[in-house]
Design a protein around this nucleic acid. Structure first.
Lengths: 205, 205
DNA sequence: AGGAAACTTTGCGCCTCCTGCAAAATTTCT
DNA sequence: AGAAATTTTGCAGGAGGCGCAAAGTTTCCT
């Protein structure tokens, strides 16, 4: 029962989720994580301050817990796809899959986006998590393209793919318009397949 | 005498540089910024601790002061180039120009790279500065491509260009080989012009 | 030059973050 | 039920970072 089965594991996950949710609630209520203290979060979640820090190294990490989980899921999915798809398609499809899976509360994601982009510390934390994702995924990409993890090409592929995911998702969140998120992501990836210097032919992009 | 001329301005710049240099020295000596305190840095630079925090919000920011300055120079250069070159070429050439201008101590840059990539807090700080650069440059890119700063295309262009700069520079630093840095950057940009899914034809990338 | 105005440096106090440690509480195993 | 394993908690302490007001510099004006 390494993971997920025992009562203990479930409780820990629940506590972690509760702390993350509490952080989110307070951050919105007080208009910024910087106006929330670890003490308040712990109180809101009904645990001690020390326990909060057992679970998260910082408020920022607590707030981005969901993001972190999504990253891990993406990574796992990518690992599978990498053996059956070209890596570029694999990354794109894994990203699309991720955002479908999720309990997709658009309003909530918008709020999170707001919080992040108004807080330097959250921007840093999120960027840090992206870099961590990069580190963990680079091996997969390298193997899939028959290159070494230190080579330039796999790093460019993964780097641009991650930027593309982040950029298209933010853009879509700001204004979903007629498109679905998968369509938005697909179009972003298409731009990079075609060569970034060729602007999209139709307006609205 | 808004900037650069007065004694005051020069002294401030000197102090800032001294603090940054002190941070760098100590970080290398102690193998990681995390093992250096703000007090030590201030002492090394011959100012009070409080003064250190007047100049930099954190040790990380102090260590990355050069990076910050380079970013500002890049931004200024880009602003000029944007009116006479296609934006993609403008970004690439501005990046190349930057790295030529600089007092180019390769060994020093390698050290900095080492420090950064072994410290989560430095990775976050650096990523945060990249995001700040993104924010400041997006307007230029948007205008240059006749789009709005909120549109997808300029954001993809700038995002991928920045990733490309970071990736190629790191790769070149790790192993300069036969190439010059401008050549390395140019090749990285070429990959994205051609379409990221077309792998480079020759090995070594 | 000389003094007022503007700005920088510094010390001090304060709050918050975050971690180690060891005792208390809880869950799991047999 | 009782022992073993694990989690929660309080406490203490180092360090980061900021507001404030006094002291020290530089610049400006006449």
């Amino acid at each position: 029962m390494a993971d997920g089965s025992g009562l203990r594991e479930r409780k820990k996950a629940a506590t972690k989720a509760a702390l993350s949710a509490a952080t989110f609630r307070l951050a919105i209520a007080k208009e910024g994580v910087e106006n929330v203290t670890a003490d308040e979060i712990a109180a809101e979640a009904g645990v001690s301050t020390r326990t909060f820090h057992n679970y998260f190294a910082s408020k920022e990490a607590a707030l981005l817990h969901d993001f972190n989980e999504t990253s891990n899921a993406l990574l796992a999915d990518l690992r599978e796809r990498a053996s059956t798809q070209p890596i570029w398609d694999a990354i794109r499809d894994a990203a699309i899959e991720m955002h479908l899976d999720e309990k997709f509360d658009l309003e909530m994601m918008r709020c999170r986006e707001q919080l992040i982009h108004n807080s330097p510390s959250l921007i840093k934390e999120q960027s840090g998590q992206f870099m961590a994702l990069f580190s963990e995924a680079i091996g997969i990409v390298a193997e899939s393209t028959g290159t070494a993890p230190t080579d330039l090409y796999p790093r460019l592929v993964l780097g641009t793919a991650l930027v593309c995911i982040k950029t298209t998702t933010e853009h879509w969140l700001a204004d979903p318009g007629e498109r679905t998120l998968p369509e938005a992501i697909t179009e972003g990836f298409a731009v990079l397949e075609r060569g970034i210097t060729q602007p999209p032919t139709l307006p609205g992009n």
